[in-house]
């Protein structure tokens, strides 16, 4: 799952640094991900994992790190 998350971040996160250099817990917004980029990441995650983030998860914190995204997807996919 982590590899897929990182691939999506590389494609849609518009990060000014290499995704490989970003730690699991590093703050993606601090790393340069914009608000609009985080939306594109969310949509790509939904397509890739065939899930829909519920309203309660449509928050900045859900997408703030690789680890946070993994936890959120884990809740939705039951894995």
């Amino acid at each position: 799952m982590d590899e897929t998350i990182r691939t999506i971040l590389a494609e849609h996160g518009h990060l000014p640094v290499e995704v490989a250099k970003i730690g699991d817990e590093d703050d993606l917004y601090q790393a340069g991900m914009t608000s609009h980029a985080s939306v594109n990441v969310m949509l790509a995650l939904e397509d890739e994992f065939d899930v829909e983030f519920p309203e309660v998860m449509l928050r900045k914190s859900t997408f703030e790190s690789v680890a946070a995204i993994r936890v959120a997807l884990g809740e939705l996919t039951g894995s």
Partner: peptide, 14 residues
């Protein structure tokens, strides 16, 4: 919409 909820949350958080 749904996308807007994240944008709004980000705007407030920042």
């Amino acid at each position: 919409g749904r996308v807007g909820r994240i944008l709004a949350d980000n705007q407030r958080a920042e």
